[in-house]
Design a protein around this nucleic acid. Structure first.
Length: 466
RNA sequence: GGCGCGGUAGCCAAGUGGUAAGGCGAGGGUCUGCAAAAUCCUUAUACAUCGGUUCGAUCCCGAUCCGCGCCUCCA
């Protein structure tokens, strides 16, 4: 069995994955800010994290994954006020939507989904430690900042030189009293825009800064040091850089060993934005008639470190490719019958080796899918030639099932045939038995109007959705 | 300005110092009452440009052009 290698943003190279605790992979994956329905770009990150998680399990590791839910920040506060709801009521709605959405995409549940607002005491305690150790200072307005000048390693993840940090155009005017413009807030003093969103702290009423939640919650669930931290490339700086500074300054121990970041998703070659009209939530895409499985395939099929250009044309291609997978799966099931699995045919064994070697190389999904599709072609050819005995077919079935524990996209969810469609199918079967082709064709049209395709096979009609 | 990623056939997308996977599309055959689907085969003088290193570069080095990302709260 080959080793799993990952690209570590910290070193910018491929490194063999070796967990701190043998056999146990511990991950912290940046999750959603729950102020709206998540868009397909967000889901690209979550699907990538899911693939990573599943591959670790495939390799035999036990996995403990933490995914945070950011339920207090500028956007959640702003939009909850606009909606006339309390912060908790407002974010609850989108937390629920998030869990519905990841289910649709067949994303496995993480072990922990801590919400920021449930961990305020941990954050306050962490800030206190930083202040006690001299890494944090309180500004005149009651906010607490992390001083990057007291943390020489600042910039090691983003590979930013401190002199390269120019004063950002987005620095708020009310942050004038920071010692260094690049210092970031650990605790934000209450502001009237915050309304009733505030917690008591040793520094007065206020709310936590953005980065501190991840440091506090990762420590709570994974301890001071863990294996993998992931997120989108846009989180490298400042979010992850700040997390490292806070965490390592507080604990004196290394934070995450490996940092994996996925590239952005583009839509029609451009960054998704509401003003461009190319902004899609998962729900928008489903509304257009695509399935979660098709979207998952589309998000999965491009290597995570390459930017992914999402188009509806490529979603159509995903649909066609999956149909081919389904057809093969069905043929295989037919050929296997109830036979017990035996030896894999040579072509399947080679494909299995290629698949694993590809995934082991930093989740090279394209090469892995190439192995899959080569196997499908070989398998179909063998079936055509009646050269695949039932036990071998069963073995190939098992191989696909094994691959699917990692991909989560090969198994087609069963769809029940609605009663009205079934009634038409029954009438059509009767017409066919009577060789009343005109009636048969008319019924096929009616069934199509209900959204189902009918095809005639040697074993009778088969209806499939759309 | 700083840091970083990418430019491979009609589209998407792997990969390699010795002329290049796979998917979609397209063409042909098979199957079929018809159809659709499926399947098999085929498909393309594809590696941004210009130099350099080398027996040999798409793959290494340099430059150039083009696209994209980050540089304080966007996955």
């Amino acid at each position: 069995m080959s080793v799993f290698r990952v690209h570590n943003t910290l070193t910018r190279r491929l490194e063999e994955f070796q967990p701190l605790e043998p056999g146990h992979a511990r991950l912290y994956t940046c999750g959603p800010t729950v102020y709206n329905y998540a868009h397909i770009g967000n889901f690209r990150a979550y699907v990538f994290e899911d693939l990573l998680r599943r591959w670790l399990k495939f390799k035999g590791f036990r996995v403990t994954q933490v995914m945070n839910l950011t339920d207090v920040d500028d956007k959640t506060i702003r939009d909850s006020q606009a909606a006339g709801l309390s912060l908790a009521e407002f974010t609850a709605r989108y937390k629920q939507a998030f869990f519905e959405d990841i289910r649709v995409l067949n994303i496995e549940a993480a072990e922990h989904y801590p919400a920021a607002t449930d961990h305020i005491p941990e954050m306050i305690a962490l800030i206190q430690v930083l202040q006690d150790k001299g890494y944090a200072y309180r500004a005149d307005d009651g906010s607490v900042y992390f001083s990057i000048d007291r943390w020489p390693q600042y910039g090691k993840l983003a590979h930013l030189d401190r002199s390269g940090l120019r004063a950002g155009v987005r620095v708020n005017a009310d942050e004038y009293d920071k010692e260094n413009v690049a210092d970031f807030a650990l605790w934000k003093a209450w502001d009237e825009k915050d309304g009733d969103v505030a917690w008591d702290s040793p520094w007065g009423r206020g709310r936590p800064g953005w980065h501190i939640e991840c440091s506090a919650m990762s420590q709570r669930y994974l301890g001071p040091s863990f294996d993998i931290h992931t997120g989108g490339v846009d989180n490298i700086f400042p979010h992850h850089e700040d997390e490292i500074a806070q965490s390592e300054a507080a604990t004196g121990q290394p934070f995450a060993t490996y940092w994996l970041h996925c590239a952005h998703l583009l839509v029609d070659g451009q960054k998704m934005s509401k003003s461009r009209g190319n902004f899609h939530t998962l729900r928008d895409v489903l509304q257009r008639g695509y399935t979660g499985r098709e979207v998952r395939y589309e998000l999965l099929a491009t290597h995570y470190r390459a930017s992914l250009n999402f188009t509806f044309a490529s979603l159509d291609a995903a649909r066609t490719a999956l149909r081919r997978v389904d057809e093969f799966t069905a043929r295989l099931a037919d050929a296997a019958g109830s036979a017990a699995s035996a030896e894999l045919p040579t072509w399947a064994r080679l494909a299995a080796t290629r698949f694993e070697a590809a995934m082991d190389e930093d989740l090279n999904i394209s090469a892995a899918l190439a192995a899959l599709f080569d196997a499908i072609r070989e398998g179909n050819a063998a079936l055509d030639a009646r050269a695949l005995a039932p036990p071998a077919a069963a073995a190939v079935q098992a191989l696909l099932a094994r691959w699917d524990t990692a991909l989560g996209v090969l198994a087609k969810p069963a769809t029940a045939i609605p009663a009205d469609v079934q009634a038409l199918l029954d009438r059509r079967q009767a017409a066919r038995t009577a060789k009343d082709w005109a009636q048969s064709d008319a019924l096929r049209g009616e069934i199509a109007n209900l959204g189902w395709n009918v095809k005639d096979t040697p074993k009778g009609q088969v209806a499939t959705p759309r």
